[in-house]
Design a protein around this nucleic acid. Structure first.
Length: 774
DNA sequence: TCCGAGCCACTTTTT
DNA sequence: GTGGCTCGGA
């Protein structure tokens, strides 16, 4: 594969083919610091992979001498895939391609003793972190209601993002928690982590930095090792990551960072846009390449996004352009409520399908995950296949975490957090009091909970059910540890789940979710099979927190805007553009303009995901915390440019409305007198004026979009037609099961349409094809 | 020790 | 609407 150095036949290199002049420049500037400012859709990943290939082809570095860091596992995986298809097996040597966190973990495992850890340290996730903090707070006798572990966790995270160790926390920030105890609790927490041989996510970076600072010789070794460094999504790096990079790049300065300040959306995680804004200053003589030619979206989409983002003050500024032909304008639509919005989007998708397009060419991008549910319900009802990306993650589910706790306890008996988690799951008669008692004794003796439990068996400290239960549990642990030596780890996991009574517990559980929990556990065992050993499996999941999930064919994607970064679809839906939803209320409350600009960047990311059509929508009413609230269109709607947007609203609703929402809209002026065409005559907001203007010009064929917010019965009528009214398969009163809503009883039958009284979620209308007899 | 009723705060976004 | 937590009774 490797081309001899000096061979100039780049045209023959597959990775150089078709690059535009700027991209080529970014690929060929191999030495010294380089900043590639890469706008949305300008071929960033392409440049990065070509650059990697070029480094290898020119013989400047061997695969293992290149450090490539990305921000997310997904990005790392994609880069690996892309480079592999570009240069083939030579890519396998790219050992140092990963996220900041996984790379740090690799380095730390090699030198753990130097920072007071054992190489087998555990990486805690947020849940464990909070449980540990809870103990720390409890031990200080601080009121947990007033000062929540969650809040302390977020403070500590923030400090770690800024590379602040406990002693460096500014006094006034320490006062943000429990009257000045913040830094002290942070220090206690760090000490506990060391005792438990654990690190949290932030520590992975911080410990690596302190390792390098403490051991200059070691740092020098890594300087020799990493001849070239590539960083993706540089705009998302925080202070700790910046320091980490600066240490590693200090000697050779062969650092290439790629990013887009307009797509910096992780400020809440400590990302510093400043890192990218001052790259030139930090690395004098840096070469800067701007990629501005967009290959993804139509001019209207690009113009809408560019105009919106121009409202931000704090940016480097760039001008995206494309030579694509016109295409559709960005569509902005107002609807009555969240349900109507889901209906509208589902209808659009069905129409898209009728045009011969695929489901997976479309995506629904939401601000927050709670917004996903309306779409799931609608899609389920219409049998539109969909896939939620992100969402409640597999490894964060309680049953999976429980299973992992068992496995962790097999790996390291002294993992107290794991012990505590499952000592009474399933119930063994070991209640809080007993666990507290064991904990107190363990702390006094300076041993782990497991060790103390063994010792207590020889004493009369515990009585009755607690004693027998604990004795049995300890015996079982020993037994499983024995089995671990003989059985493959997947069989071990199955054995533990059986013998511990965990699966029996779920089988006996009447809750409708219990069945899916069992499925999840099966999935867990299956996925363990991808790894050779238990240790390898645990290592992987702690860091990656995700598995390659089986691709499930053609389906609509539902995901958050954050998760959408770096992806693209021909048809993109952007629902929920309402004040306090998007921009989110939190962002507005928190930090004023800075946060608002980040929300705007998020909107920019959203629009630029679309290749052919971007469809924004907002509702007049929304259920928030289970209460109906009337809401206003997002300010971002008003920031979209005339001429690139088609605005439509079904104002028929506002005529009939008698509730708060109608009044709120009425504040814009008199209500529409022309129900159906959708446009009133006296609205003041620019967005509405634009909508009006568009309608007047006949830009919007009202027939094509009218009625999308029609009364509920429309949707139902269609449903009936679609499934036909077959023989009634269900009897009144019959008990049934529904995948989403659980168990219920049939209340009413009308053809294939059933009214079911669900035990958990009340009365709903569903189609018989979605339920089965219970 | 366990379990249900009632109260509460809560929803960003991810390694 | 939800899920987590506390409290009181079995």
């Amino acid at each position: 594969m490797a081309r001899a150095p000096g061979n100039r036949g780049e045209a023959a290199s597959p990775w150089m083919a078709g690059l535009n002049p700027e991209q080529r420049e970014a690929v060929e500037a191999l030495d010294g610091p380089v900043l590639v400012l890469s706008g949305a859709g300008t071929g960033k990943t392409r440049v990065l992979t070509a650059r990697l290939a070029q480094l290898l082809a020119t013989g400047r570095a061997k695969p293992w001498e290149i450090l490539s860091v990305t921000f997310t596992n997904k990005a790392a995986r994609e880069m690996r895939d892309r480079i592999q298809s570009l240069i083939g097996p030579a890519s396998e040597g790219l050992r140092w391609l990963g996220t900041f966190h996984s790379t740090s973990a690799m380095i730390l495992r090699r030198h753990a003793e130097l920072v007071g850890l054992k190489p087998s340290f555990t990486v805690l996730d947020t849940d464990d972190q909070i449980r540990l903090l809870k103990q720390v707070i409890e031990a200080e006798n601080i009121d947990q209601k007033r000062w929540t572990p969650r809040f302390l966790a977020s403070l500590i995270d923030g400090w770690k993002n800024r590379a602040l160790t406990p002693e460096k926390v500014p006094a006034e920030e320490s006062f943000l928690f429990a009257n000045g105890k913040g830094a002290k609790l942070y220090a206690t927490y760090q000490a506990r982590l060391k005792i438990l041989n654990c690190v949290d996510f932030g520590d992975l970076l911080l410990e690596t930095i302190s390792l390098f600072l403490k051991e200059p010789d070691l740092l020098a070794e890594y300087h020799d090792r990493f001849k070239y460094i590539l960083v993706d999504e540089y705009q998302d790096t925080n202070v700790a990551q910046y320091l980490w990079l600066r240490l590693l790049a200090r000697k050779r300065r062969n650092l290439c960072v790629v990013g887009d300040d307009d797509q910096s959306i992780y400020g809440w995680r400590g990302a510093e846009v400043d890192n990218i804004l001052r790259f030139e200053h930090d690395f004098p003589g840096a070469k800067i390449v701007r990629l501005e030619r967009n290959y993804r979206s139509t001019p209207h989409i690009l113009a809408a996004a560019s105009h919106l983002i121009a409202a931000n003050q704090n940016r480097l500024g760039k001008t995206l352009w494309t030579d694509m032909s016109e295409g559709d304008r960005v569509l902005v639509r107002g609807v009555w409520d969240g349900e109507a919005e889901a209906r509208l989007i589902a209808d659009d998708i069905e129409q898209w399908r009728r045009l011969g397009r695929r489901y997976d060419e479309s995506a629904v991008l939401v601000r927050a995950s709670w917004q996903m549910r309306a779409f799931e319900e609608r899609f389920l009802m219409l049998q539109i296949p969909y896939k939620v990306i992100g969402g409640p993650r597999f490894f964060e589910r309680a049953e999976i975490r429980d299973a992992h706790a068992y496995l962790r306890l097999i790996r390291s008996p002294d993992d107290d957090l794991a012990f505590e988690r499952i000592v009474n799951v399933p119930k063994r008669g070991i209640g809080d009091t007993s666990v507290q008692r064991i904990g107190a004794a363990a702390r006094l003796a300076g041993v782990s909970l497991h060790t103390m439990s063994q010792q207590l068996m020889g004493s009369d400290e515990l009585k009755g059910a607690a004693r027998t239960g604990l004795a049995r549990f300890i015996r079982q642990l020993d037994h499983w540890r024995q089995k671990a030596l003989e059985l493959p780890h997947t069989e071990l996991a199955e054995l533990i789940l059986e013998e511990s009574g965990y699966t029996d517990m779920l089988k006996a559980d009447k809750n409708p979710q219990a069945a899916s929990k069992l499925d999840n556990l099966k999935e867990l065992v299956r996925s363990m099979g991808q790894f050779d050993t238990l240790a390898a499996y645990l290592e992987h999941i702690e860091l990656v927190m995700d598995l390659d999930r089986a691709e499930e064919g053609d389906s609509v994607q539902i995901l958050t805007l954050h998760a959408a970064k770096g992806l693209e679809w021909p048809l993109v839906f952007l629902p929920g553009w309402e004040e306090e939803v998007f921009p989110s209320r939190r962002a507005l409350d928190d930090k004023g303009d800075k946060a608002l600009e980040e929300e705007r960047r998020l909107a920019y990311v959203g629009i630029t995901r679309a290749r052919e059509s971007a469809r924004i929508s907002f509702a007049a009413n929304r259920q928030i915390y289970g209460r109906w609230t009337s809401v206003l269109p997002s300010r971002f709607v008003d920031e979209l440019p005339d001429g690139h947007v088609d605005a439509v609203s079904d104002t028929g609703y506002f005529n009939q409305g008698t509730g708060g929402a109608a009044e709120r809209f009425a504040a814009y002026g008199p209500l529409s007198t022309q129900p159906g065409n959708g446009f009133g005559t006296g609205y003041e907001s620019p967005g509405w004026k634009r909508a009006q203007a568009a309608a007047a010009l006949g830009k919007v064929a009202s027939g094509t979009v009218r009625g999308f917010g029609g009364p509920v019965i429309d949707g139902e009528a269609k449903l009936l037609a679609r499934t036909g009214a077959g023989d009634a398969k269900y009897q009144l009163g019959q008990r049934i099961f529904h995948d989403k809503f659980g168990y219920g009883a049939v209340r009413h039958v009308e053809g294939s349409k059933l009214t079911i009284a669900f035990e958990k979620s009340g009365e709903k209308k569903v189609l018989d094809s979605f339920v089965r007899p219970a």
